[in-house]
């Protein structure tokens, strides 16, 4: 137990240091262009443009529900890496979950978190490898790939989601059916803002499955009492 505590301590320590360094780098290049090269566009220009971006994506900036979701699904190490590298929902989360889909239920949280971190780190290496190729030979590669293949690539993500859902469904079919039912319901509740709908579905599914499990356990107890 103590070892576990120490593992998570170290993850948070390094997670916070690396994110802080990233912020320094991001600011550094801006300040360099503005004041060393004297290309400063003016604060009002930056502010106007920044507000424009804040209006479109700002609602994701303090999204605690997403963070709880990520913590539950892949643990803090994978979440820090996903935050720094972006593309969480389409790339990091699937990588993390596919990595720990094989972990048995009784094996516990820390093993799952460590394997999720391996999955996300691999995803980062693969992605960066592609980006470096992109910088070196991008145009040429796009010209030689057949267009039919490019179209097919768009459907890898939905297929992946279906496949991972199937992997998890093997662990407990009842939980899978209940969760999918709840998802279908919540998905069609249009009064919930769309960025909160996944989280609502997750919380509702957790509650429903706990309630169902407890009532099943109680029924079992009762029938054992009768004998």
């Amino acid at each position: 137990m103590e070892e576990q505590e120490r593992y998570y301590q170290r993850i948070h320590f390094w997670g916070r240091i690396t994110l802080s360094m990233a912020i320094l780098f991001f600011l550094g290049i801006c300040l360099y262009l503005s004041f060393v090269l004297q290309l400063h566009p003016g604060w009002e220009v930056i502010l106007t443009a920044f507000l424009g971006i804040a209006a479109t994506v700002g609602h994701t900036w303090v999204n605690l529900s997403d963070q709880v979701t990520y913590l539950l699904l892949m643990g803090p190490a994978a979440t820090y890496m996903s935050t720094l590298t972006g593309n969480v929902k389409n790339m990091r989360l699937p990588s993390a979950l596919a990595s720990c889909a094989m972990v048995e239920e009784h094996e516990g949280r820390m093993k799952r978190d460590i394997l999720a971190a391996y999955g996300v780190a691999t995803s980062i290496f693969v992605n960066t490898f592609f980006l470096i190729i992109l910088a070196v030979a991008g145009q040429f590669i796009l010209e030689i790939l057949p267009p039919a293949l490019l179209r097919g690539l768009d459907y890898i993500v939905p297929a992946l989601f279906g496949a991972i859902f199937a992997q998890f469904s093997f662990k407990n079919a009842r939980v899978a059916v209940v969760s999918l039912g709840i998802v279908l319901l919540v998905y069609h509740l249009s009064f919930i803002p769309s960025f909160l709908r996944v989280f609502t579905a997750i919380v509702a599914a957790i509650i429903a499955n706990i309630v169902i499990q407890q009532s099943a356990a109680r029924k079992k107890d009762n029938s054992e009492d009768c004998h």
């Binding site: 979950l97 890898i156 998890f168 279908l184 579905a201 997750i202 599914a205 429903a208």
Partner: peptide, 29 residues
């Protein structure tokens, strides 16, 4: 563990439904 499993199934279920809702190809995939 039940919480983690429910959360995983619900989020992937949601992604699947969200894609499947777009068009027949996504649904089939």
């Amino acid at each position: 563990l039940l919480i983690g499993l429910s959360a995983s199934l619900a989020s992937f279920g949601y992604f699947v439904v969200d894609y499947a809702d777009r068009d027949i190809r996504n649904l089939v995939a």
